[in-house]
Design a protein around this nucleic acid. Structure first.
Lengths: 230, 230
DNA sequence: CAGTTATGATAGTAATACTATTATATTTGT
DNA sequence: ACAAATATAATAGTATTACTATCATAACTG
């Protein structure tokens, strides 16, 4: 992933920030420490004041980069979706069959991120934990329709679209490629969270393999079964 | 459903309230109007002060029934899970095959609630909308482990356990009945939400039938495919 | 080196999430 | 029927949050 992060820039909808944090050291420090602090405190207890304290700047400075903490979260989660989409692109490049492409994509999505590819100021491992615990809060709001219209969820949609494309390649008759894509993406988060915090309602170990098996089986079986005119 | 609500009481973990709201008129008014107000404002903008204004009582009175708005939400969502479990029990009673039991359960879970069975102070139709948009906020918090230990999610777990039981009856070899149960339950919410607010990433019409078809197909195909030693 | 821009330091405001106090109803026991 | 207990109303107060505003200074830019 070194080359990826070295040469390609993760594109974030510019409506999500006031000033692009990638353009300054301070901006990068804001992003870097917001990830650590949201993970540590949870989004509800996270405040710009605390973030300011963590980086030694007043909260008013952070407002020059992000309008509010909700948009900062949207920014971080958007970053993750774009990053994940690139990982999926790489994982499916030069792969012959759509079946293998889908398996590789699922594996990419479900694999717990390991720290080692962390060359930028963004700690992807911690960011993934934020995505698992906080990402649904970005859209489960009363402002969803307006924010969706504003393009805040573009990167999420792109990822779903890409997965749906692979699904359709594998089975062009399948009627719900997008629904399946978003279901498997979110099921991954949900089950990871339950595995860690409500183990009694999971049958899945905390290792990745078991969850990948479930999601792979679910996906391939619905695609095999779905169009079969029996 | 008349008899159900008339004779059976929905059991809510008593840790969720300070004083049982079912025991007084005021308590019922608090519950009734909290449902309407959370639906109207969204959970973030909902406050005890506004709820007090809606029922003509000071906010301090509401604190005598619920410790805070998070616990009030937990109470409402718990109520829904218990209610849904009873609906599943009725929908599967006297049904011969596990296959039909599962189909009836899925139908019960996925059907959009219609207002007519609203005999109590609880408007189940509106409550279902709250469940769709807000229920994941009950567990996606930093306090999850403690709250889980305290039994706040008992009713949710009961429902998952019941569904998992039916799934296991249908296919005793299937390794992930709980995971499948929680996945289909939450996928239902997610897709209903996306269908209404982010239609571009769904292939599912806003009618129930299409979503039920997807979830039924997903469930039955993984159960057919899963254990098949091919 | 003047002018712009970014940041720091500090203050202020309305709203939120409570807690506390006291007065007044209402219910309950005898 | 009346005292005692309890529930609710009315009101006030506090720390924190989510901002907004102002001004000084530092840093970069033409």
């Amino acid at each position: 992933m070194r080359t990826l992060l070295g040469s390609l820039r993760i594109q974030i909808p510019e409506q999500l920030y006031v000033k692009d944090p990638e353009t300054t050291d301070l901006g990068k420090r804001i992003v870097e420490h917001s990830i650590l602090l949201i993970n540590e405190l949870g989004f509800e207890c996270f405040t710009f004041r605390k973030l300011g304290a963590a980086i030694g700047s007043p909260e008013s400075t952070i407002y020059r980069y992000f309008e509010n903490k909700h948009k900062l979260l949207l920014y971080l989660i958007s970053w993750y979706w774009a990053w994940l989409e690139y990982k999926v692109v790489f994982a499916t490049a030069n792969v012959e069959t759509a079946k293998d492409q889908l398996c590789n994509s699922i594996r990419t999505i479900c694999e717990t991120v390991k720290q080692d590819q962390n060359f930028s100021h963004i700690n992807e491992e911690v960011l993934q934990r934020i995505v698992i615990a906080e990402s649904s809060k970005t859209f489960l709001t009363k402002e969803i329709d307006q924010e969706n219209k504003n393009g805040y969820f573009k990167n999420y949609k792109n990822l779903i679209e890409r997965l749906a494309g692979i699904i359709s390649d594998l089975n062009p008759d399948f009627k719900h490629p997008r629904t399946l894509a978003s279901t498997l993406l979110e099921a991954n988060h949900l089950q990871k969270f339950f595995g860690e915090h409500m183990p009694s309602i999971t049958d899945i170990a905390t290792q990745d393999e078991d969850l990948i098996l479930f999601i792979e089986t679910m996906t391939t079986s619905i695609l095999n079964y779905g169009p079969k005119r029996s």
